[in-house]
Design a protein around this nucleic acid. Structure first.
Length: 588
RNA sequence: GACCCCGUAGCUCAGCCGGAUAGAGCACCAGCCUUCUAAGCUGGGGGUCGGAGGUUCGAAUCCUCCCGGGGUCGCCA
C-alpha cells in the first residue's frame, strides 16, 4: 500500500497544516520534522516546527509552540499535546492511531514501508567494478553488498534504479592478465614454465584459463609473437574472469542489470575522443603544463605540455591530464566518456561506490559530471573503507606475494552469505570494518546477524506453538494473515506492546531517511533495535504469564497478540530482505 | 606540501540534512530457567563527544585553526 502515508508522514502533514493555519500559507515549512522523541517519556512524536519557524514569524518559539499546539489539539488522532524545552511540541497519539498502523503493516505485508519518495526518478548506481584480472577480495565484497543494498533500498523508496558494473577491460592490467594466462596456456600444453615472473599474476585461478585456451587453440598460439596471440588470449581471459566474478557475486546474491565495458568506449567508435572533442569545443579542455606533484611518488616526472581538463572550473584542485606520454588515454579520460554515457542514457542521479583508496579521485569525476551535464546531473560517490579480516580476534595473515590471500569467495563459503552481508552493512560505509570469521557464525546474542534472524524465527515459533492451544489456527501464512485481519487490536493495552508497535511504525520513516542519506546501514541498526524489543517482550512473558503471546483460555487476546507478532515479522522480514539477508522461519 | 575520510564509555560502534539529562553491544558487577526456544532477559557503575575558538535561542552535529590515525596525489584502475 505505497499510496497510503505512514503515520509519521501523516502527522507531519497535520503539523504543517496547523503551522500554516497559524502563520499563513507563505511560511516555509520544509525544515519542519516529526520524529520520535529521544526520550519516550516526552510522548510518541515530537516536532521542531515552532523552533524552526519562530524566527521568520518574529515570535518567540514557546509562544508559537503554544499556538500550534492549540491547533493540534483539535486533531482526532491526537490524545495530548505538550510544549516543552525550548519549544518542542510533544504529541501523544490515541492508541487507535498506532493500532491502525499495525493493521496497515499486516495488510500491506511485504510492501509495508514502500514509498513513492523517489517519484520514479532514474538513479544509476555503479558498484563492484573490480578489475577482471582475478578473484575478488573482501573489500570488493563490501562495495558489492553496500551497492546492492542501497540499490534495493532506493528501489523500495520509489526510485527507478539501474544497477551497473563497469568492466575495466581496457588498461594495461588486462594485458598482464593475458600474458599470465598465456603462460598457463603453455603450461597446459606441457611446457615447464617454472616460477611465475614478477609482474605477472601468480594465482592458480589462471590454470583453468590456460587449459581452456589449450583446448580451444591447441598449439596454434605457441611460439608466436605476442602481437598474434594477445588480443585473443586477453578476450578469453577477461570473459573467464568475469564469469568467475559473476559467480562470486551470485554467491552473495548480488546482481547487476548492466555490465558496461570500458573497451566499448573506444571500439568500434572512439567515444573518448568524441567526448574530448566536445569538451574542447566548449573550452573545457586545453593544452598546458602542470606543476609537478608534491611528493616523491612520481620519480620520472617530466615537465611537458599535455591535454588537460579544466576541472578546477568545476570544483577540483588541479586540472587533470587526459593523455599519457605514450598518447593513450588516461583512465580518467575514459571515465569522463563513461559518465557521459550514463548521462546520455537519461540519468541525472548518479551514485558510484568505490574503495577508499580512490578518494582522491572524487572531485575530478564530479567536476566532469558537472561539466558534461551543465550542472543538471549530480554524482554522489560512496567510499567503502577497508575490511580487516580477523579470526577470534586475531588478524588473518594475508600475503599477496605468496598468493595465499583470502578471497571473498573463501569467506562466503566459510561463514555464509547472510553473515557476510549483514555484518558488512552493520557499519557505516566510511568506517573501517573488523570482520571476525569466528564471531559472525556464533549462535548467540553477541552476534547481530543471529540476533535479528533469531527474532524473526522466534516470532514464527509463536505461530507454530499457538496451534497446540488453538488447533484451528491456520499454519499457512496467507490464511494466518487473513485470520488476523479481524483481530481485536484494542485488546493490546500493555505499555510494552504499544511501545513495540511504535517501534515497528518507525520503519517506513527509517527507510526514507536511509534512502535520502544513501546509508543502508541504518536499516541494519533499526532491525537490531526492533529485534531487541521483541526479545524483551518475549522474555517478559516468563515472569508475567499474562503477557505471553498465547493465552490459554482467551482466543481473542491471543489473536490480537499474534497480530502484533505478525507486524514484527512483516518488518523484520522486509528489512532483512532489503539487506539481502534471509529471514528464517526457524533456526537450525 | 595539498586534498579526502576518521577521532564519541576500558573495547567495537550508533547518534536520523543543529535541538530537550549523549545511546547500544562487548567487557565488568548484581539478578532471572517447573513448559510460549536462557540461542534469551532485567538492573548497575562507566564519557571534558581529540583540543581551542566561532556561528546560533540551542553544537557530538555547521565554520576556522591545531593535534592524532588512515588514504590519495600525471603516464595503476
Amino acid at each position: 500500500m505505497a499510496s497510503e502515508k505512514h503515520l509519521f508522514a501523516l502527522m507531519l502533514e497535520r503539523v504543517q497544516a496547523a503551522a500554516a493555519a497559524v502563520l499563513g500559507a507563505t511560511a516555509d515549512l520544509s525544515r519542519v520534522v516529526v520524529e520520535p522523541p529521544r526520550d519516550a517519556a516526552h510522548g510518541d512524536m515530537a516536532t521542531n516546527a515552532a523552533m524552526v519557524l519562530a524566527k521568520d514569524a518574529g515570535v518567540k518559539p514557546r509562544e508559537l509552540a503554544d499556538t500550534i499546539a492549540q491547533a493540534l489539539r483539535a486533531d482526532p488522532m491526537i490524545e495530548t499535546v505538550d510544549v516543552a524545552g525550548p519549544g518542542f511540541i510533544n504529541m501523544r497519539l490515541k492508541p487507535a492511531a498506532w493500532l491502525g498502523e499495525l493493521r496497515a503493516a499486516i495488510e500491506s505485508g511485504a510492501s509495508y514501508g514502500e514509498s513513492r519518495m523517489g517519484n520514479g526518478q532514474k538513479v544509476n548506481i555503479e558498484y563492484v567494478s573490480a578489475n577482471p584480472t582475478g578473484p575478488m577480495h573482501v573489500g570488493h565484497g563490501r562495495g558489492a553488498i553496500f551497492g546492492d543494498a542501497l540499490a534495493s533500498l532506493l528501489a523500495f523508496t520509489g526510485f527507478d534504479v539501474t544497477r551497473e558494473y563497469y568492466i575495466n577491460d581496457a588498461g594495461a592490467q588486462v594485458d598482464v592478465l593475458a600474458r599470465s594466462a598465456y603462460l598457463r596456456y603453455r603450461e597446459a600444453l606441457g611446457e615447464t614454465i617454472g616460477a611465475i615472473p614478477d609482474g605477472l599474476y601468480p594465482g592458480d585461478y589462471l590454470k583453468p584459463v590456460g587449459a581452456a585456451l589449450a583446448k580451444e587453440f591447441g598449439a596454434k598460439l605457441q611460439n608466436k609473437p605476442e602481437s598474434e596471440w594477445l588480443p585473443a588470449v586477453r578476450a578469453r581471459g577477461i570473459a573467464m574472469m568475469m564469469d568467475l566474478i559473476r559467480e562470486d557475486l551470485a554467491a552473495l546474491n548480488v546482481k547487476h542489470e548492466v555490465y558496461f565495458s570500458e573497451r566499448s568506449l573506444t571500439a568500434p567508435q572512439d567515444q573518448v575522443a568524441a567526448t574530448i572533442d566536445l569538451l574542447r569545443k566548449q573550452g573545457k579542455i586545453y593544452e598546458g603544463r602542470l606543476p609537478p606533484p608534491k611528493s616523491g611518488a612520481v620519480e620520472d616526472w617530466e615537465d611537458r605540455e599535455q591535454t588537460l581538463f579544466r576541472s578546477t572550473d568545476f570544483g577540483d584542485d588541479v586540472d587533470r591530464p587526459l593523455k599519457k606520454s605514450d598518447g593513450t588515454y588516461t583512465y580518467f579520460a575514459a571515465d569522463i566518456a563513461y559518465h557521459k554515457a550514463k548521462i546520455d542514457r537519461g540519468f541525472n542521479d548518479l551514485i558510484d561506490v568505490w574503495g577508499a583508496d580512490h578518494g582522491g579521485y572524487i572531485k575530478r569525476v564530479q567536476a566532469a559530471v558537472k561539466a558534461l551535464s551543465g550542472g543538471k546531473a549530480a554524482l554522489d560517490v560512496k567510499l567503502v573503507q577497508l575490511v580487516k579480516l580477523l579470526r577470534a580476534g586475531e588478524p588473518v595473515k594475508m600475503s599477496k606475494r605468496a598468493g595465499d590471500f583470502v578471497t571473498l569467495r573463501d569467506v562466503v563459503d566459510e561463514v555464509g552469505k547472510d553473515a557476510v552481508r549483514f555484518m558488512m552493512l552493520y557499519r557505516k560505509n566510511d568506517a573501517v570494518l573488523d570482520f571476525d570469521l569466528a564471531k559472525v557464525i556464533e549462535q548467540s546474542k553477541d552476534n547481530p546477524v543471529f540476533y535479528v534472524q533469531y527474532g524473526h524465527a522466534r516470532a514464527h515459533s509463536v505461530f507454530r506453538n499457538v496451534r497446540e492451544t488453538f488447533p484451528d489456527f491456520p499454519s499457512e501464512a496467507k490464511a494466518r494473515i487473513a485470520r488476523l485481519h479481524d483481530a481485536k487490536l484494542d485488546l493490546l493495552t500493555d505499555e510494552a506492546e504499544l511501545s513495540l508497535i511504535r517501534k515497528m511504525a518507525v520503519y517506513p520513516r527509517t527507510l526514507e531517511a536511509a534512502a535520502l542519506a544513501h546509508e543502508p546501514h541504518r536499516i541494519a541498526f533499526y532491525l537490531y533495535e526492533l529485534a531487541s524489543e521483541f526479545h524483551a517482550q518475549w522474555t517478559r512473558g516468563k515472569d508475567l504469564p499474562h503477557l505471553r503471546f498465547i493465552i490459554q483460555n482467551n482466543p481473542e487476546l491471543t489473536e490480537a497478540r499474534l497480530a502484533l507478532v505478525q507486524g514484527i515479522v512483516t518488518v523484520l522480514g522486509s528489512g532483512l530482505g532489503l539487506l539481502g539477508v534471509d529471514a528464517p522461519v526457524e533456526m537450525r
